[in-house]
């Protein structure tokens, strides 16, 4: 899939809370083909402490409005700079990067945690467009760590789990009653321990499972070889050969 470097305009900034915000970015022309699960590398402007671009999942795509939405967690200098930007500002993106989700399965389960819910919104939208209604299970330590959850509602059966019980079932996503339903495909993105638990369960049940990884990255296009995961076939670049991997390619990683 062809990659581009393009200036986008921030047309909407939404602040969920002190941890999360979203930016809706408009392309000057029609957007190229983008898969659910792909990501962008965002140039961080006007911050001398930040050298490298930041990889951020594509949260949503609106082909009619030519917009990409990013859900961003404030974690460091790069994302804090993005949080200080305003509607009308320009952001330069290298995109769309990596391989997305396969969109297989007629009765799929989507499991997201924290910022990892980001790529699952566009995935659920794409599945819905194919006539598939996914079960969407989102979790976080507390209610405010599951931002943008309302946006998932039109695209599937939404269920929530929080460790403090502030919304949804109290506990981990893997303890939610809906987790053990009969699904034919599982997609997961979120904290590493959560993804490993989900993948171990799926593999034990023989359900095809795809995990979306987030490693520290420099280039985002498979040139620097910094973001590798120790797959069953050796080191693989998360940026180029991922970020979505079949769980059965990562059995060592999952079981460690």
């Amino acid at each position: 899939m062809k990659k581009y470097i393009t200036d986008f305009t921030i047309i909407e900034k939404h602040i969920f809370n002190e941890n999360y915000f979203s930016l809706t970015l408009q392309h000057p022309q029609h957007l190229p083909e983008i898969e659910a699960g792909q990501f962008v590398e965002v140039y961080i402007p006007d911050n001398k402490e930040v050298l490298l671009r930041r990889p951020i999942s594509i949260h949503d795509v609106d082909r009619d409005a030519n917009t990409i939405k990013l859900l961003i967690q404030k974690v460091g200098k790069g994302t804090s700079t993005l949080a200080s930007m305003h509607e009308g500002d320009i952001l330069n993106l290298v995109y769309p990067l990596g391989h997305g989700f396969s969109q297989q399965g007629n009765n799929p389960l989507l499991v997201g945690g924290g910022a990892g819910i980001a790529p699952l919104l566009y995935l659920s939208k794409c599945l819905k467009a194919k006539g598939i209604t996914p079960t969407i299970l989102l979790g976080g330590r507390t209610e405010k760590l599951i931002p943008s959850r309302e946006e998932f509602k039109p695209f599937g059966t939404l269920a929530l789990a929080t460790e403090d019980g502030s919304i949804g079932e109290k506990g981990l996503v893997t303890q939610h009653p809906l987790f053990q339903g009969s699904y034919d495909h599982i997609y997961t993105c979120g904290p590493t321990p959560m993804m490993k638990a989900v993948a171990r369960y799926a593999m034990a049940k023989g359900i095809p499972c795809e995990v979306s990884l987030e490693n520290l990255m420099a280039c985002g296009i498979g040139a620097c070889l910094c973001c590798v995961v120790d797959s069953d076939q050796g080191h693989k670049c998360v940026c180029k050969e991922g970020p979505v991997f079949n769980a059965n390619q990562l059995t060592t990683w999952i079981n460690n």
Partner: peptide, 14 residues
């Protein structure tokens, strides 16, 4: 190559 992590951003460098 070496195990992950293999990269760290530093002031004006990596």
């Amino acid at each position: 190559g070496n195990p992950y992590p293999r990269m760290a951003e530093t002031p004006a460098g990596m």
